[in-house]
Design a protein around this nucleic acid. Structure first.
Length: 924
DNA sequence: TATCCGACAGTGT
DNA sequence: ACACTGTCGGATA
């Protein structure tokens, strides 16, 4: 169960009449315990309680239903109960159906409230459901509750008003929800005349059968859109007309289509329910991203679980510009003049998120800046001063309609809350209304819009122009920024999509972005469009930009395909956060490893490199997010050094029928199928873990008759044929003509040196093996067929590992080996016969050391914590011999290894001979 | 023709 | 539920 589901269950429980005997079990069920767990507790077999009517779930909670009026006493009894301690309960809970008290024993934190209100504290108990790691959830109980209820209302309204679900009406629906949220917030924060006034008015004025609910709400909306003196003329009834109760709000929020969907009874009750939440508790930074799922069919399953956490957002914003502002504040001390200058500077800072979702980057940036400004005003003795940071300087683009609405609202709410916090409620209220008319969140396709017109550079009056003429020009973005001479910071977390996963439209977006350049845009991730547009933007006005990105952007082929042109375009990396796992609250966790990269056109100044929260100051950061000079290792079709050609294993897509497991192989052999038609099939997994698979192997153009006469073989080949013919891929269909074969049919004569395509990064060496002639390799491994054993010494070296980790691509953080990026680019000095003989000896020693531990698998042998000493020594000797060939001694560390390799690579690729060689290779 | 990559995916604890 | 670690197939050069 996720937090939203728990909230729903808990709320339902509290609404039911209290059942003393059942409550403990129902409570545990609401927190996601399985039926069997509850059954066993009920039967008493796992109930460790020593109190009458008590239920104690080991390591979790001790619950007791109290006699009427004795809640506090019962809680004390639970606290001193020996069973509580013995069973290591984390919570104790007592209730009589009227009062409710609970305590988290470790922290001593308590909850005491009316029974009906205990769902307000469900976040307190979330760890019972195993949701402990993320503190944020607990602190945002309100946002989760509000989100889940708004979602229920949304679904219910669409059920009653199917027309509103159509594409054309969706915007109206979303806009309506935004208006409602505003009203809920306003009625709880004194923006309206009385706490709860909106909900109360709807309840009082609408019939219980709900038939006129939409009219009542519509009337209130019209009032909010009409200035006080005009209301009588507009025919607004007395109950809605008082401007001290329902003030003039407008600001675009209540203008436009005023239609309200019809409410069923259920929808009406949901609405009243939502209104009764305490909306002062809303966190605009979290709420926004939670709520965006409300209107999103696909995301609804993980409702509210996909928000970007505040610490992660700060990883972008702090190094981008907030750290600098804070430093300036610290330096300014109490100097009134310097403080004033800083305030002026801040009032002209623009923050632009071109993939803003529901605006959390913008909201957090705003709140952080208000915090700094408040400190300035305090030090200058002007604590009541109104803010000089205009909300219009926080701009965004969002594709989806509902999040765009919410983003705008979240910023409005953030502004109000900051005013209350720093200046007091009265001043906040005085200046809050009416809202300004402009909408500074643009709903549209970011990659097709002209960012310069949405966030125009200083001092020019650029009109909004869509890059793509098919886009309807928007009328909302022609607001002048109040930021003459200000700085612009672009930030956000745009979507990632690998080249193979992009839709036609997304491909077209990218194509348009890179129009007029010679980049290999077809191979780039979708997010590269954002980087490129930001880079273009930065050529018009001074800008720094930073995005959260999939980490593959700084690996493998992207280095030369993407970063090389970006650097040539004048950009540099100012700061970067190296790969870390992105986590959110979704049960189906979004598993992705990301980096954060901040760029500008600055020419000097220190750069910052972050790794696991460790900050390092460096002179330069290259595209690999490694400190040091720019290097771009390009794919090469042939080895640049004097090394043999390495081949990728046979591509075996749509070849299921050709693969054999233990039983299938045994059956075929029993049938009398000749051994020669069956080969060992060894990919990465088999090499590393020592598991076994086989395949049918018919290198001849035609299927040998003895094999064809076996019905099982024939059936298998037919299967392959069918699957290939069924593919939409033309290349696959052509492969159906030779269904007895893989796409490639490479094999060795004598032996093969093999390297897994993907393998764990935790091993101290690459898992390279020597394989015999009966082995066939799938494309999960690379192969050096029939080469000198010295190659194994090179491949198994520390040098090669360091090179591989740096220049090859990765699967998240795993090593993804590649012949074109890793092997063919590896700089190796010319080897004498003596060198080769020495290396061969080293390779043999490594193989012998492994054999001594038979039947340990490669995974066993190279377990970083349990690598056998003799094997380690064999590798040490191998490294010693190889490294002496490079520099006459051992390298001191991996940094030195990498420096040397890059130096050699640069030389190797700069020499005319190498270039000529490459050209010849290309022509051949 | 051959290779790169996956807001991942499968497995074991 | 989390840690660990590599498949398989589409799209592209």
């Amino acid at each position: 169960m996720n937090a939203v589901e728990i909230e729903e269950a808990v709320t339902k429980l509290a609404e039911k009449p209290f059942d003393a005997a059942e409550f403990p079990y129902q409570f545990l069920a609401a927190f996601g315990n399985k039926d069997t767990t509850i059954k066993r507790l009920r039967a008493g077999s796992t109930n460790a309680s020593d109190l009458p009517g008590g239920v104690l779930q080991r390591s979790n909670i001790h619950i007791a239903v109290a006699p009427p009026g004795k809640v506090t006493q019962t809680l004390s009894a639970l606290r001193i109960s020996p069973a509580t301690t013995k069973a290591k309960a984390r919570f104790i809970l007592a209730t009589d159906g009227d009062g409710f008290e609970a305590e988290e024993l470790e922290s001593g934190e308590t909850v005491a409230c009316a029974y009906a209100d205990f769902p307000n504290h469900f976040g307190f108990f979330l760890s019972l459901a195993g949701i402990t790691t993320v503190k944020q959830v607990r602190e945002s109980s309100f946002d989760i509750r509000a989100t889940s209820r708004l979602n229920r209302l949304y679904v219910e309204l669409l059920k009653d008003n199917p027309a509103w679900a159509s594409a054309e009406r969706r915007h109206d629906m979303n806009h309506f929800m935004a208006r409602l949220i505003f009203c809920f917030f306003a009625e709880d924060t004194d923006i309206f005349g009385k706490i709860g006034l909106f909900t109360e008015t709807v309840e009082r004025m609408s019939d219980r059968d709900s038939s006129n609910t939409h009219e009542v709400i519509g009337t209130l909306f019209r009032a909010l859109n009409t200035k006080g003196p005009d209301r009588e003329a507009a025919g607004i009834p007395r109950w809605a007309a008082r401007a001290d109760q329902f003030p003039y709000v407008n600001g675009g929020l209540f203008s436009g289509n005023m239609e309200v969907p019809r409410f069923s009874r259920i929808a009406r009750s949901y609405l009243l329910h939502i209104g009764n939440l305490d909306w002062t508790k809303i966190n605009p930074d979290i709420f926004g991203s939670m709520i965006q799922a409300v209107a999103d069919e696909e995301e609804r399953g993980a409702l509210g679980m996909h928000y970007t956490s505040v610490p992660n957002i700060l990883k972008v914003l702090n190094p981008l510009f907030l750290d600098d502002l804070r430093e300036c504040l610290a330096e300014a001390g109490d100097n009134a003049r310097t403080l004033l200058n800083l305030r002026k500077r801040m009032s002209r800072i623009r923050v632009f998120d071109p993939a803003c979702g529901s605006g959390n980057f913008l909201v957090i940036a705003y709140k952080e800046m208000r915090l700094i400004e408040a400190e300035i005003n305090k030090r200058r003795g002007e604590p009541d001063r109104s803010s000089e940071i205009p909300l219009t300087n926080f701009r965004g683009i969002e594709l989806r309609d509902f999040p765009a609405e919410v983003a705008r609202l979240a910023l409005i709410i953030a502004e109000f809350q900051c005013d209350v916090l720093y200046r007091g409620k009265q001043l906040a209220l005085n200046e809050f209304l009416p809202l300004s008319k402009e909408n500074w969140i643009t709903c549209g396709n970011s990659l097709r819009l002209d960012w310069l017109s949405i966030c125009p550079p200083t001092g020019t009056g650029v009109k909004l122009v869509a890059d793509d003429l098919l886009e309807t020009p928007l009328d909302q973005a022609q607001i002048d920024f109040e930021n003459e001479g200000g700085e612009t910071y672009i930030c956000g977390n745009p979507p990632y999509k690998g080249n193979a996963d992009q839709t036609k439209d997304q491909k077209e977006d990218i194509r348009k972005c890179f129009l007029g350049t010679n980049l290999n845009w077809k191979s780039l991730d979708y997010i590269c469009g954002w980087f490129w547009k930001a880079a273009q933007y930065s050529s018009f006005t001074v800008t720094k930009f930073a995005f959260v990105s999939t980490n593959s952007i700084s690996q493998g082929q992207n280095i030369s395909y993407f970063w090389k042109p970006l650097f040539e375009y004048g950009l540099r990396i100012d700061f970067a956060v190296r790969s870390f796992r992105w986590r959110n609250l979704a049960t189906e966790n979004a598993t992705v490893t990301v980096v954060i990269i901040g760029c500008s056109r600055s020419k000097d100044g220190v750069c910052y490199l972050f790794d696991e929260n460790i900050k390092q100051e460096v002179l330069q950061i290259n595209a690999y997010l490694v400190p040091g000079k720019d290097v771009f290792v390009e794919r090469s079709a042939r080895p640049l050094s004097n090394l043999p050609q390495m081949v990728k294993g046979n591509y075996y897509g749509l070849s299921d029928g050709l693969l054999l497991d233990e039983t299938a192989r045994a059956e075929l052999l029993d049938d009398g199928l000749s051994q020669e038609h069956i080969r060992t099939f060894k990919g990465g997994a088999e090499i590393v873990r020592g598991t076994q698979r086989w395949c049918l192997w018919f290198p001849q153009p035609n299927i040998p008759t003895d094999a064809w006469s076996n019905p099982k073989v024939r059936q298998r080949i037919e299967l392959v044929k069918e699957s290939r013919l069924a593919s939409p891929d033309l290349a696959a269909i052509r492969m159906a003509e030779r269904p007895h074969q893989f796409r490639e049919m490479h094999a060795c004569n004598e032996w093969t040196i093999a390297i897994p395509n993907v393998s764990s990064e935790s091993r101290p060496y690459l898992p390279v093996t020597l394989e015999s002639r009966d082995v066939v390799f799938p494309n999960t491994a690379f192969a050096l067929y029939d080469t000198e054993l010295a190659c194994l010494a090179i491949a198994a070296s520390r040098l090669h590992l360091v090179w591989t980790i740096t220049v090859c691509g990765k699967l998240e953080t795993r090593i993804r080996y590649s012949n074109t990026l890793g092997w063919n680019t590896l700089p190796v000095p010319a080897l004498t016969d003596k060198n080769k003989a020495d290396l061969t000896r080293c390779a043999e020693d490594i193989l012998l050391a492994r054999e001594a531990h038979f039947p340990a698998t490669i995974a066993d042998l190279y377990d970083p914590d349990n690598m056998p000493a003799d094997l380690r020594e064999a590798h040490e000797r191998n490294d010693e011999v190889l490294e002496r060939i490079y520099i006459g001694r051992r390298f001191r560390n991996d940094t030195e290894r990498l420096e040397k390799l890059f130096e050699l690579y640069t030389k190797m690729t700069a020499s005319p001979r190498a270039t000529a060689k490459k050209k010849r290779a290309g022509a051949a």
